[in-house]
């Protein structure tokens, strides 16, 4: 399936958000940006509607960027196309231990 749509907000972002229902492991998604560029990326993991994938490899500890701003850090190495959520991203704000 080549019609799955994902949106990357800024050039700095290393994640994109998938707006399609039922995207399964191995699916090809078409990642668009606001300038009209697009890239086909193969998804690793099942990704629910509105959830994110990495658009480039992200190392453990590296910042995860969306809207051109940091939204957390990777808790392990993340491959390009891999599902990114609370299992491999941790917030850096609003916590008592930092």
């Amino acid at each position: 399936m080549n019609d799955c749509l994902a949106l990357k907000v800024t050039d700095l972002d290393n994640v994109a958000t998938i707006f399609a229902n039922g995207v399964k492991d191995g699916a090809q998604v078409d990642v668009h940006d606001k300038k009209g560029n697009s890239e086909i990326i193969k998804v690793i993991g099942d990704v629910p509607y509105g959830h994110k994938i990495a658009v480039k490899p992200i190392r453990k500890g590296e910042l995860i960027i969306k809207y051109g701003e940091e939204i957390g850090a990777a808790t392990r190495d993340i491959e390009k196309g891999e599902y990114v959520h609370v299992h491999n991203l941790e917030a850096l704000r609003g916590r008592g231990d930092l």
Binding site: T17, G50, K52, E70, G72, A91, L92
Partner: peptide, 13 residues
């Protein structure tokens, strides 16, 4: 979180 927001930062932005 079920809706795809992974952190307070992402929600805030």
């Amino acid at each position: 979180i079920a809706g795809g927001l992974s952190s307070i930062e992402e929600k805030s932005l």
